[in-house]
Nucleic acid binder design. Sequence first.
RNA 1: GGUCCAGUGGUGGAAUUGGUUUACACGCACGACUUAAAAUCGUGUCCCGAAAGGGAUGUGGGUUCGACUCCCACCUGGACCACCA
Length: 815
Amino acid sequence: MKYDHNKVEIKWHRKWLAEKIYEPSFKFAKNPFYNLMMFPYPSAEGLHVGNMYAFTGADIYGRLKRMQGHDVFEPIGLDGFGIHSENYALKIGQHPADQAKISQKNFYRQLGLIGNGFAWNERLETYDPEYYKWTQWIFVQMFKKGLAYRKKSPVNWCPSCKTVLADEQVVAGTCERCDSVVVKKELEQWFFKITNYAEKLLNNLEKIDWSERIKIAQRNWIGKSEGLIFSSPVKDTNLIIETFSTHFEAFTADTFVVIAPDHPLLSRLLDGVPNKSEILVFCKRIISERKKDHYDKKDSEGIFTGRYTVDPVGNGNLPIWVASYALAEYGTGIVKCSAHDERDFAFEKKYGIKLKPVLFPKDPEHRKKIEDLEECYTDMVNGYLTEPPEFAGRKAEDIRREIVKYVVKKNLARPVTKYKLRDWLISRQRYWGPPIPMIFCGPPAGGCGWQPVPEEDLPVKLPYIKDFKPTGTNQSPLASDEKFYKVECPKCGGEARRETDVSDTFLDSAWYYIAYLAKITNHKSQITNPFSNPLNKNWLPVNMYIGGAEHSVLHLLYVRFLAMVFHDLGLVHFEEPFPKFRAHGLLIKDGAKMSKSKGNVVNPDEYISRHGADALRMYLMFIGPFGQGGDFRDAGMKGVTRFLDRVWKLSQISNVKSQKDNQGLEKRTHQTVKKVTEDIENLNYNTAISALMILLNEMEESQREISQVELEIFVKLLAPFAPHMAEEIWREVLGNKESIHVSEWPKHDSKLVKESEVDLVVQVNGKTRSVIRVKVGLSQEEIEKTARSDQNILKYLDSVKKIIFVKDKLINFVS
RNA sequence: GGUCCAGUGGUGGAAUUGGUUUACACGCACGACUUAAAAUCGUGUCCCGAAAGGGAUGUGGGUUCGACUCCCACCUGGACCACCA
């Protein structure tokens, strides 16, 4: 009988749904396993093969867990709010709300085709008011806790698209959509105080089992650095400035100070300086030119402020300059500078400031160059100090700690920890997102200030407005909808104005894993309070989370941050939402990144209809290690379609053939069980599939002697990868009543896995000269005897001085 | 510029407490079947060499009886971050 993949796959999709094999019994589950994959944002023409790749990889893991006896919950939903979706709607001239309905239908259709074990009943969409009601509720809790606040801040602005852009839409200083240069604009914005949790976000990384590269990225992003703050008075003023330094070993080398052009203290510093206005004009220009392009270290610009500070370490008066390379938002925004920093050095040279090197290399010739100021020397590890006298002649890396003690004792500085992490800018002046649930009560009325929308009034529904395009007026399109923004103050009842900005998409996705569980209690559209859900205790945190590495410092940091806040508010019982996370690799196409502009995006639909979902799944997983990604080439499909054809053929003949035992095959089968199980646990799907191919090859060779038991084991091992064909063979060919996907995963017999004979390598001076087939466990004497009589070895054995023997592996004659 | 990862046949890739380099698959070549092609099946396929043998895991060095694997330097590619003091 021929295998018609289209028919078979649709048949099982229907049956699986009817039999509810992918809906765990939530209340009575003994062995809950929450298997979560990052949900997609339906931004473009549909699901592309990269999504398919990610979901299939996650699904295979879930299927193993299910067959191993876990109650697996594998939900799916759409991250449909946000700029991505809105941009797509803009592009094709649709209203985002209308487009969402179309995309939703198409995405769920496509997601259905790949045959994953999704719990369809619990699916959710972030633009559903029942969902974003709770997104807004979370905002309100953040505000009440003092973790949501407003601040004026420069944001990315695309002059051509006339809109604010999210950071992630700014690629190398230009707009992702039109390549225009992005400029900074000062706007008052809502922020979440993620910096409060910097230390915990960093420390908890030690406790969670995540792909190491993601942990590294988060550590770098949080950017903890320990340094010293020196403070010193500014002459002729009553100001005191503080400077931050992490490379403070050469602290006596400082000869001047720079301050950021946008530093809040600058204006007061310049009070009384004759050319104040000239300096401020300079600062304004620098600020506006910033971020236009990549920074060039040699191109620093500066201007002298006319002020001096008294150096705390005794270098006299240090001139204070405004420098383009000083950042107001890092450290204290003011830096003490020396000859031992590349940027400082270039700046000093450019403006003829006095230099005083105190750190030198050992090599005298090299040292001379530093003394003559021909070269900048920055090696705080191998350099030797000449100052202060207490540390003269000592290596920089050896005395870091001592210097801290020294300066603290002398009251010159204090140790401080700083982070690169900045607060999360949460507002967006766009339409397609959850309105921020805040109301401002100004002076004409009670002047109550910012008030949260009362919880019973949530959700603040996003109105359907015709003109949803970005306005270019620093305000969301909602600001032109009077019905929306004109409200009463919840506190005094006076006339007030509703916040018209919406929140960042990453807030939507920062709590969705909790929302899926809230869907269970009510299968309609309502989400009952997700944080008082009794199921949370049993089902959270998520057991396995799989997703793309591109979210390593966005989504994956925000979601951890919010979980910590929830924990501190007593809303959840865990701090880390995903104790185990694995990043999958990037799927490229013919050597290039898939992108719409290149026109090389692969739509999975045609592959599924031509070869079947099973073949596509297997091909995607066979390309390479799941954690590393792979290159999608049409030619590669052939290998797995052949494999599946052969599996089908084998199933058609084997059940009528004899049941005779075949010891070789039995051993291979058990070895394969072990290998496939371990490989799936480690997400090494490519080698698991290759092991199945090897087993199939051997089964074909010994066709007449396959027992039903071995075929059953084979089909079970295949089930996570090719769920449809495995089910078809399991039920229709082998006659089982219950689904293979809830059957028991095979276990290997460790006795049967062991080989009784091995190929033992015979080497002479480390070169392989012969391979002998021997029984396992033979002693050196026995092996030596056999090896010495080997024809290929005899001629080398004249002057053996030493013999290296590794049991069951090799013997090496060294002469 | 910083951080991290990778470099193995014609191609995707296998191989890790250091122990037979190239599993599995694609492609290619030849053969079978066919009027023919596709599909399928079989055989072969790292390089040099008739063979014996030698060489080969980006390059150069080191440690070791033995290195794809560990160490040092460099080259190339990729990812993320990027004026972070």
